[in-house]
């Protein structure tokens, strides 16, 4: 067992965990932050994306110990201070960018990392960036639309009213 300390969503936490504990398990089971999901075992689906020191990473491919000392943000830490949805979350709701919601936390975390890197991405750039996030429900239409809208771009001309 090792003691691991990190800052998660602005709060410092210390837990004594096994050296081989994955970050997904650390978040879900130790901290009971169950918004980070596990959709695969080959690092393909992106349901587990979190931010570690501001970078989007797949929590299923990191050991908790690797995040020691880091600033971690999960989907639970994304809303505005007053609890309202942030711009990206709100755009996902406004444009119906989610159905079952299982891929959604990872999508929001990836989208937020993208917009930090590239504040006005094109449709093609968004689609390319989401290479590592699989959604089985939406056919991606409204996810891409929501991200365009969240970046302040006009989506009124996009097909389907």
């Amino acid at each position: 067992m090792v003691d691991v300390t990190m800052k998660v969503n602005g709060k410092t936490v210390t837990k004594s965990v096994k050296g081989n504990m994955l970050m997904t398990e650390f978040l879900r089971e130790e901290l009971r932050l169950t918004g980070t999901h596990v959709g695969c075992d080959t690092s393909q689906c992106g349901a587990c994306v979190i931010h570690v020191n501001g970078n989007a990473v797949k929590a299923c491919t990191m050991f908790a110990g690797e995040c020691a000392g880091a600033e971690v943000t999960t989907i639970e830490g994304m809303a505005n201070k007053d609890g309202s949805l942030n711009v990206i979350q709100q755009a996902f709701q406004d444009h119906h960018g989610l159905q079952c919601g299982f891929c959604t936390p990872g999508m929001v975390m990836s989208a937020s990392a993208l917009l930090k890197e590239n504040p006005k991405p094109s449709e093609a750039e968004i689609r390319h960036y989401l290479e590592g996030n699989i959604c089985r429900c939406t056919g991606y239409h409204n996810i891409v639309k929501a991200i365009l809208a969240a970046s302040g771009q006009d989506v009124s001309a996009i097909a389907a009213e």
Partner: peptide, 21 residues
């Protein structure tokens, strides 16, 4: 109408079966 269930899904507050212990 916008979906009311979205708020919980967008904030990580959904309750999926694996979230139940």
């Amino acid at each position: 109408q916008k979906r009311r269930e979205d708020v919980r899904f967008l904030t990580g507050a959904g309750q999926y079966t694996d979230d139940i212990n």
